[in-house]
Each structure stands twice: as structure tokens, then as C-alpha cells.
């Protein structure tokens, strides 16, 4: 899995590409911007073609850790495959999910009190 980071509307956008499963979940868990204290992040899922329970576990873990530090994880552009995993597990109840990265970053920015 390829993980890249860019800044959009002063919010860190982490773009994932490939498969987020047991073999790659640890890469995401240890990705520094994902864990940085209190700063909100947006995770762009538009290029993720597979997500399993381990990947979901990594996301939930990051979200829980972020929240404990006052930060927030916002998800964007879930394709049908990924959205179905969120649907069946009801993990959507834990995240703000947007269909557009820019809208997600604006929301994260607002929430952080940048605007």
C-alpha cells in the first residue's frame, strides 16, 4: 500500500492507495502524520480497492487515539467496496464521511477552529 500526504486547506490529507489489510494496516498505524497529536486529518480512500477487518481496526485505532488527543479523523471518497465494509460493520457511526476531499478538509478545518 502506498501512503502519501499532502496539505489541503491547511489540513493534512493522507491518501491511501492499494489494499488496506492485515499486511498493510501496521504501515498506516505507524505513519507519523496519522498519529501526530491533536491535528485533524482527512483520509482519502478514493484509491483503496480493498479493506478488511485489520485495516478497519487500524482506522478505528487511529480515530480513538486522535480523539483522545482532541483531534479528529475524517474520511473521504469511499468507493463502493470500502463503503460496504463500513456499512456491514456499522463503523460509519464513528466517522464523518464525505464524498469529496475538499469538502472533508473544509469540515476538518472548521472543526479545528481555523475559519
Amino acid at each position: 500500500m502506498i501512503i502519501s500526504e499532502k496539505i489541503c486547506n491547511s489540513i493534512s490529507v493522507i491518501t491511501l492507495q492499494g489494499t488496506l489489510d492485515a499486511s498493510t494496516a501496521s504501515t498506516l498505524k505507524t505513519f507519523k502524520p496519522a498519529l501526530a497529536a491533536s491535528s485533524p486529518i482527512v483520509i482519502d480512500f478514493s484509491r483503496v480497492d480493498f479493506l478488511d477487518s485489520s485495516g478497519l481496526g487500524a482506522l478505528v485505532g487511529i480515530a480513538r487515539e486522535k480523539r483522545s488527543k482532541g483531534g479528529e479523523v475524517t474520511l473521504a471518497c469511499l468507493n463502493n467496496k470500502v463503503r460496504k465494509v463500513f456499512e456491514i460493520t456499522q463503523a460509519y457511526k464513528l466517522f464523518d464521511i464525505f464524498d469529496d476531499v475538499e469538502a472533508a478538509t473544509l469540515h476538518a478545518e472548521k472543526k479545528q477552529g481555523h475559519l
Binding site: 477487518s53 478497519l56 478505528v60 465494509v85 460493520t89 456499522q90
Partner: peptide, 25 residues
């Protein structure tokens, strides 16, 4: 439990997420 297998905190409400996942997959 699946939560134990995936090393999720077994006492948290999040365990339902992994259990629902395996109920389907």
C-alpha cells in the same frame, strides 16, 4: 471472540464492528 483474534479491546463498544465484519465475511 473475533475481537480477541484481531486484538481489539474486548471491553469496548468497537468489538461489535469486527464481529459484524466476520458475521458477513
Amino acid at each position: 471472540s473475533y475481537a480477541e483474534a484481531e486484538d481489539w479491546p474486548v471491553n469496548g463498544g468497537d468489538t461489535a464492528i469486527v464481529e459484524r465484519y466476520f458475521a458477513v465475511h
